[in-house]
Amino acid sequence: MAKQDNQPQRVRDTGHEWDGIRELTNPPPRWWMIAFHASWIWCVVYFILYPSIPLVHDYTRGILGWTQIKEFKEAVREGEAMRAPYLKKIAAMDGQQLLADEEMRNFSESYAKAIFGDNCAACHGAGGEGAPGLFPVLADDDWLYGGDIDTIIESITDGRQGDMPAHAGVLSDDEINKLTDMVIAASKGKATKEQFMLFDEAGCSGCHGENAAGGAINDLGTGAANLTDQIWRFGSSREDILRTIRYGVNQEGVEGTREAIMPAFGEKLTPEEIKMLAVKVYGFGGGK
């Protein structure tokens, strides 16, 4: 390294002078030169090791063979390897066991978050808040088909389709109006004996049960609602209730009928994913 001398009296200048200010021929400081050499050496080494120089149709690949996509795939593999033992365990466990095991439950809820977001949240909301009147709330304690973990797994696997006949034309307007009064009264626990008789005669109790508490023939999978509680699947206003009784639920060819179709996920998701999903759904409102 050239010897440093900052004293302009003794240093040769370049002959450039402007306004009496002379440009000297001092080399840069040593620390600067060290940094400079370190930088270009780094560049050369990097260019040899990593993909760097673009060519016409290709680029230099570097002797390490490193690529971003390889690194990504490696990371995915690592993640999968970490999850594999859990998934294996889950395959061997049923819903009840999953819920009882704190570690497995936490794993399931974290894992199922993305699955829920991809498949369920569009209708049921990210936190199971649903869309009252349109899509069921999962965070409450009212379950049309049952809120135990096994039934939830069944609902996700096979899907659900409610079925309530349309009554417009079958019953008179007067009768439908009276039934609507009855349903509103029942939800407040104030339905009279006469109203219950009408309910029975109109055939409602066949599905909703003699005391209107729902679930009478849920084995058939109709999802008959409990009419005595405060939760309304299709809205709580008088117009909403009238419409549901008039045009029913999922009635083909009936205009104004309520749509309530939960698709089956048995073929889209693996049994393990469905189990984890059920654990998450169960956790929204604490299950039943």
Binding site: G127, D140, D142, Q230, I231, F284
Partner: peptide
């Protein structure tokens, strides 16, 4: 406090917060 939903109406008419 759970934000989605902020509260849930339960079948007995009560309000639940998670």
């Amino acid at each position: 406090h759970e934000r989605q939903p902020l509260f849930t109406r339960m079948s007995d008419g009560s309000i639940q917060n998670k």
